[in-house]
Design a protein around this nucleic acid. Structure first.
Lengths: 119, 119
DNA sequence: GTTAACAATGGACCATTGTCAATGGTTTTG
DNA sequence: CAAAACCATTGACAATGGTCCATTGTTAAC
């Protein structure tokens, strides 16, 4: 699939897709049938883009996501290293979610207090 | 309390504290007893800094946090407006956490799959 | 009372995460 | 085949969230 199609289906701008690719978050394969200079994306690219969105919402930076990709599908996977990396990131996200949860709770309490004021 | 004390107790750099203050996230009171040009922070500043951290982990930008502050403790609070603002932010954070959760789940699954490989 | 430590301000600088515009090549459509 | 639509590359620009530095003022310690 060409970038235009990917853009249409994902809602992400072509510039952003190319930006992600430059940074190793997504890959395009050279087309088997065509010999142009157009990027050719596999179907999985869509899921990958969705995954990037999720990672960002979880507080991952592009650099971190790129490291993740390298570790889990790069050549010569170092299992121990990958395992350690994953565990660390899992911990970080859990901590972040804890903090976010506390903030959310506070917002809700604030809203409730406000509502009580409103009558 | 002066900025140095706040910095010591919060672990946040003085530049960052002043940056936050410039952007309306925190306020210093003119000291009642002293007549210098030093910032004077109330005890609550510490909690405020902690709250800023939480908000950031929840994906809040500085601008959003500043708007929040204005709404809940600014002069002439518009209850309806504040209520709507809070609800919207609550929804956004919940959506973000949903995505983050999905990502976390995927990381855990990836780690489990990796572990299975390791023996 | 003078030095050391602390604080304020202004402005430059930095990384991150995109976005835009210009220019030129490729494909598709009519 | 000519025009419109699509794509690539390069490099500039922008917003966000700080950080650093130089200069100057203030306070505290010796």
């Amino acid at each position: 699939m060409r970038i235009g199609e990917l853009v249409k289906q994902s809602g992400i701008s072509p510039d952003t897709v190319r930006f992600y690719e430059r940074n190793g978050l997504i890959r395009s394969l050279p087309s088997a049938t065509e010999t142009n200079s157009y990027r050719n994306y596999p179907e999985e690219a869509l899921e990958r883009l969705a995954m990037i969105k999720q990672a960002q919402q979880a507080g991952f930076s592009i650099a971190e996501f790129s490291q993740l990709i390298e570790r889990i599908e790069g050549p010569s996977v170092d299992f121990f290293d990958a395992d350690q990396f994953l565990q660390q990131k899992i911990d970080e996200i859990q901590e972040r979610m804890k903090q976010a949860k506390a903030f959310l709770k506070m917002l809700k309490a604030t809203k409730a207090a406000l509502s009580a004021h409103m009558d």
